[in-house]
Every structure is written in C-alpha cells, then in structure tokens.
Simulated scan of single mutants.
Amino acid sequence: MIAALVGLYDPIVNWFRNHPSPPVAIISDMFFSWTNRLAGELKISRYVFSPSGILALSVVWTSWRDMPKRNDPKDENEVIKFSNIPNCPSYPWWKLSPLFRSYVQGKSQSELFRASSLENVASRGIIFNSFTELEKIYLDYLKKFLGHDRVWTVGPLLPSEEERVERGGSNEILAKEIKSWLDQFENQTVVYVCFGSQAVLTNKQMEMLALGLEKSGVRFLWSYKEPTKGHTVGEYGMIPSGFEDRVSGRGLIVKEWAPQVAILSHPALGAFLTHCGWNSVLESIAAGVPMLTWPMGVDQFTNANLLEELRVGTKVCEGEKTVPDSDELARLLASSVGDAKGVRIARAKVLSKAARDSTGNDGSSYRALDSIVDQLSKP
C-alpha cells in the first residue's frame, strides 16, 4: 500500500501547478511520507498527521534512529529497551513495528519503510490525535527527539453527537436495539467486547473468550468480526454452539458492526475489552470507561502499556494468536465491573474530563489548533 500510494506523486504535482490558488502546505497521514519530498519540490511545508499516539510513534522513530542490536537474531523474545524514552519502555522483539523488523531482516521493500520513516521525521511538524494531558511526558520527549517544538496534539478527534450512531458503519435499527438493551441495566455493569475492524479471532480464541464470559456471570455486549478473504474457512470467527442460548438475557452478540462511540457513552458501560487500537483507546478514555486490554499487533502493545501506566487498563491477554485462559479471563471480567473497579473507573473519569477540557474553549488541543493555523500563516 505504501509503495502504491507513491503513484499519486505526479498527479498531485500537475494539479498543484495548474491550480489558480495552490495550497500553502500539505498535511498528510504518516503513510504518505513521500509528500515531504513532494512539498520540497513545490517549495511548501509538509506536516505529518498521526492517527497513532505519541508514545507509539516515539518507540517507532527511536527504533529507526538507534537501530537497536539483537544479541540473538533467532530469539523473538529478546527484550529491547528504550532507555532514552521516559519510563524506559521495553518490548520483546516480536512486539516491535513489523515494518522495522522487516527492514532488519532485509525483506522486500524494507528500504522503502526506512525511507518513509526518515521522511516523516524530516517533515516541518507533526499533528497527533491525542491530548497533552494524556501523553505529556512523551510529547516533551518527541520535541526533544525532533529538535523543535512543532509538535501538536489536537485530540481526541471524536464524532459529534449526531454522528455517533454512524461511527464505523450505519445501521439505525440495530443502534436503537442496542440502546434499548443497555437501558435495562444499572450504571457501570456491562462489559463491551470488541477487537476493531480488522482482527478476526480463531475458533479456539472465540471458544475461550465465550467460556470466560459465561463463567464470569457479567452482562456483556460482544461485537465480533466474521472471517474475510484470506482466513481459512471453518477456522475463524465462529460463536460456540449453544453459547447464545446459555447467556440469553445477560449477553448481546452483534456481528460485524456496532455503534461503538454510542455504546461506550452509555451509562451502563463499566469496562471495555479491547485490542487497543488508538481510536478505541481514545473513544473509551473520552467516555470514562476503563479497559481490559488484549493487544494484537503494531502500536497496540505500546497503547496497552500506556493504559497500564495511566491506571485505566488491565492486561488480560496479548498477541494475535494467543489463546486466553478462560478462568483468568472470567476473574478479570468479573472484577472489572465489581467492587474492585473503584480506582480504575475513578481514574478513567479524571481522564475523561481532561479529554473534554482539552477540546473546549482555551483547552490544550483548542490552543494547539490555533497554533497550527498561525504556523501555516507564516511565509
């Protein structure tokens, strides 16, 4: 995909040169790193927009700069430490960016990945879908890493009240059914389970997750993705036989799509079992809902660590092929909406208020957006 997007280079140059009022700058996603070279040719500035968090990108960019060495190239569990980053995060090799690991292993197109990262670092500035109060120490680190302060947080970027039902899809009837189902429960007593728009669980993972939910006795709403092209038929995404009948009344199972932002905003929600994609993390924090984490790849491991550090996340499993222990999962599910939830939900509410304040008048994200406009206005 990264290589294919480079094909837009010449069409954009032609469009720009024939435009009566060409842009003063380019703001583009980090996968469009080649737009930094394009901006140079057009003699304008390019700014990176990152849909990932600051800690996650700090680890990625520090990897490319420092090129950490491995003592045993065959040991996928060898721990790599990032001592220059605040709190000295460390990860086994298999958790690092797959693009970085591809480069180290000399795989096809890996030079493109390295060049892409360096172009992003060299850009005029970077804009994050995050907020200062959430990742301040990592914001300060990244400014030091880049050698300038043109780093802004403008999040959390969330849909409006009117758009919440359509976030990620559109099914107004189902959205109303889900709200009606949630309305019958007391505040903070339901666990929402969802692993994003890409992850598809193996049948064994589905079985152990279902068993954990069943043993826990919690009320839950489980939105799951069915197998797509590339998944072996019969090995992925199957709800265990009889499970829906056994949990009838306290469990609601939804295929493919659910209005996630609206669900998380409902008072009945007490916890969110998530893969820790950054959008899901921000949506849960904004709603004041603590998380049970099951990171599966890319920046999700970093995000899960951040949530533990912030005391709003509890790890239940990790890895896209790992099968959870149903008894331990049941215990964690039960405690997430039980008496033990106090500290995490209180902390989640504090961060929720900080998220709202950041985008309000004179909030940190509000001021950052003004600062970006000022920057773009400069010659």
Rank of each mutant, 00 (worst) to 15 (best):
M1A: 13
I12R: 04
F16S: 15
H19L: 08
M30H: 09
R37P: 04
E41A: 14
L42N: 04
K43M: 12
Y47N: 01
A56R: 00
W64Y: 15
N77F: 10
P89F: 03
S90A: 14
S90T: 06
S90F: 11
P92L: 11
W94H: 15
W94E: 02
K95D: 05
Q109V: 12
S117L: 12
E119R: 13
S123M: 12
I126S: 10
F128R: 06
L146N: 02
E161D: 15
E166S: 15
R167L: 15
A175C: 06
K179T: 14
D183N: 13
V191P: 00
V193T: 14
M206N: 07
S216W: 06
R219Q: 05
G237C: 09
V247G: 02
S248R: 07
I253V: 11
P259H: 09
A268Q: 04
C276L: 04
W278D: 01
W278F: 13
N279H: 11
S280E: 12
G288C: 12
W294N: 03
A304E: 09
N305W: 08
G319D: 13
A330C: 07
S335A: 13
S336M: 10
V337E: 07
K341F: 10
G342V: 08
A346Y: 11
R347C: 05
V350N: 13
D357P: 01
S364R: 00
S365C: 06
P379W: 10
